[in-house]
Design a protein around this nucleic acid. Structure first.
Lengths: 246, 246
DNA sequence: CGGCATTTTGAGTCGTCTCAATGATGGTGG
DNA sequence: CCACCATCATTGAGACGACTCAAAATGCCG
């Protein structure tokens, strides 16, 4: 509720702007949502499987992910989230969590009561449609990850993920010049792509020796965007971005 | 618009009933949607990638799937659909198709104009929420398929799919006693699970020799439900079904 | 009955995995 | 300030799961 956090709803507005058109009135309504902010350390669970959340969490700063642990102890990561995302928006209409949400880095999150979200969507059908749309894009991204795990080589899958994250970050103004900070360990990449950490390491070496990318100290640079997108068949249509003048 | 097709909106109502509670008024509103029915042969595309659809397609009879073809000619199937499903419901809010929808068997589909759907959702927020919810369950299923491809053995992945389809069919009254008609070729199963048709064949043999299942002439019987769900870690929570008395 | 799609089997290969050890890196406390 | 520890990245070796290619068997529909 502090000015800091209300100001930070800008991040959400910027995100929604990237996938749909908002009116000034709608922006104001979003900006005045009651939020509770919190600073979290890395690797902290925000929502657990089997929970019945009564609020959504808006990521303001840092990275988060959704995941599930299998009985054999294996982990599958379903998605990576960046500022502006609401990783558990689905909990607005699905009562039980079927997976976990956790931070990957230190992160600032704003919690928004479901009640407030429901009032907002009832009062502004266009916002409801935009949020619905956001969950649909979410699904589209899942489908592309399925392609990666099912039908792409390990190298293509990694490359595709790197392209996807760049486009997502660039859309909310958090990356440019085909470079960004990628705060993921090789194990996390592996758990997202269905690979072992060892194999991710070898794939990264390949991407580096071919000089498609550089990656050190968490900073990823895509040196040959066109070649890389070509290699992995990256087509950003599925992200359904709509460019609006900022 | 024929009585036949309006009567067939029962299928949609039954489906929505399986994931949420509807009032009588809402049921009537759904039943009076203007629809155009069509009988299609097997393996016919209903919607194409890059299309800008102006209607949704409700599956009344038969099976359908969503898929994408990669540049190298490989195919990834994203989902299987059964009567009551609206495979391209997302086109209501995402203008461009990022994948294809096609029939797997002979099928009856009803086309509903987006305009009518949007009027319905505007007039009945509860229906809007239910449809939104349906697309969220869709996403939850994608996530489980990701687990299958990323972190389950081939055998577990096949078993998990068989359990999932049983629960979905059972929920709309199209299967019982752990048996159903599965109109899929081994190649189609493979393209859905990220496996080769040859390997699917070997996995099926394993499932058969262990007497978990029988499968001949398209009829699948799960002989040991408990053992099979145990083998693949099947937990139907992610389908978010709500049992309502029929 | 023929013809075509599908299933089944075999054999050999390749991608990715696991286990294990070694190098870097970064943060912490004495 | 540095030694220490934990985490992460990197490399090697061997094993295994799944793939490809190819051929034979089966089933199905007209």
């Amino acid at each position: 509720m502090t000015p800091t956090f209300n100001h930070s709803m800008d991040m959400l507005i910027r995100k929604l702007d990237s996938i749909a058109q908002l009116s000034d009135e709608e922006r104001r309504a979003i900006a005045s949502l009651p939020v509770t902010g919190r600073l979290l350390g890395p690797d902290q669970d925000i929502v657990h499987e089997h929970d019945h959340p009564s609020q959504c969490c808006l990521l303001l700063d840092g990275w988060a992910c959704r995941y599930q642990i299998l009985s054999e102890g294996k982990r599958q990561i379903f998605s990576f989230h960046i500022p502006g995302d609401i990783p558990d928006l689905q909990s607005l209409h699905l009562k039980v969590m079927d997976h976990n949400v956790c931070t990957l880095t230190q992160a600032t999150v704003a919690f928004i009561p479901h009640e407030a979200m429901l009032e907002l969507t009832a009062a502004f059908p266009a916002i409801a449609a935009t949020l619905w749309r956001d969950t649909l894009v979410d699904g589209a991204i899942f489908r592309q990850w399925m392609v990666g795990m099912g039908r792409r080589t390990a190298c293509q899958a990694v490359a595709h993920l790197f392209c996807e994250m760049y486009v997502k970050l660039e859309a909310v103004g958090l990356a440019r010049d085909h470079a960004y900070y990628l705060p993921l360990t090789q194990s996390e990449l592996g758990d997202a792509l269905g690979l072992s950490n060892v194999h991710v390491n070898r794939v990264l070496r390949e991407l580096r020796t071919n000089e498609w990318i550089t990656l050190h100290g968490g900073k990823l640079e895509i040196k040959k965007w066109r070649e890389l997108t070509n290699l992995c068949g990256f087509d950003p249509t599925y992200l359904h971005l709509e460019r609006h003048a900022a």
